[in-house]
């Protein structure tokens, strides 16, 4: 309405981003206009370059510019253990801890009955193929304790257990800095179940 056509188009495009409303989109568009031409070209080419070069790894489905990805190609990784996560950002969160040295498998989502998202829309078939064809000893399910996460874990457990491998799920409990008094029943009961000797 009050914006010249190229600016209106830029605002419209920013509004397609998750969590970006009209006001934030306007702020971002005006920020772009205030940048130097060199910086704007740098941003535009970074977007195009990432979109063109970053793909899913054919083995673990993590985002990478090479195939297989850096983690799958590394000799230092334990190939006998696969950690299953829902999204690439979950993998990055686990990598930040520097505790885990095995390989990963990204499901690219979770089973969501209310959204009609079923197992066939995830990379579950590829996971079973990996477990079958590689010498896997343990599958760790690092999946959020939500309703969708629980449904996915139940389904995966049903498929993986008959293959005779160890299937584990990451522990639940109180977050660091959390307050016991405010924890919900499910968290507390699961924290009790998963207690360990000190």
């Amino acid at each position: 309405m009050h914006f010249t056509r190229p600016l209106a188009k830029l605002i419209e495009e920013f509004q397609k981003f998750p969590g970006v409303g009209p006001k934030s989109a306007q702020r971002m568009a005006f920020h772009i206009l205030s940048l130097s031409s060199e910086n704007v070209h740098g941003l535009a080419s970074a977007i195009v370059d990432a979109k063109d070069r970053v793909k899913h790894c054919s083995r673990c489905f993590h985002y990478s510019a090479q195939d297989p990805c850096e983690i799958c190609a590394s000799d230092r990784r334990d190939r006998h253990t696969i950690c299953v996560v829902a999204e690439p950002r979950d993998l990055i969160a686990l990598e930040r801890t520097r505790e885990y040295k095995g390989s990963y498998h990204v499901l690219t989502g979770l089973i969501s009955p209310m959204e009609g998202k079923g197992p066939e829309q995830l990379s579950i078939r590829e996971l079973i193929h990996r477990v079958d064809s590689e010498e896997v000893k343990e599958v760790i399910l690092a999946i959020s304790p939500t309703v969708e996460g629980d449904a996915t874990v139940l389904y995966l457990n049903h498929l993986l257990k008959p293959l005779g491998i160890k299937v584990t799920r990451i522990a639940f409990g109180l977050p660091v800095g959390g307050d016991l008094e405010y924890a919900d029943d499910v968290t507390l009961s699961r924290a009790m179940e998963g207690r360990r000797e000190i």
Binding site: P113, V147, D150, A151, L154, Y155, H158, V186, S189
Partner: peptide
């Protein structure tokens, strides 16, 4: 109430979400 048992049975959980 949290119905924890629903979270250990895929079919019952699917019905509850239905």
């Amino acid at each position: 109430e949290t119905f924890p048992k629903l979270r250990s049975d895929l079919v019952r959980l699917s019905y509850a979400l239905y």
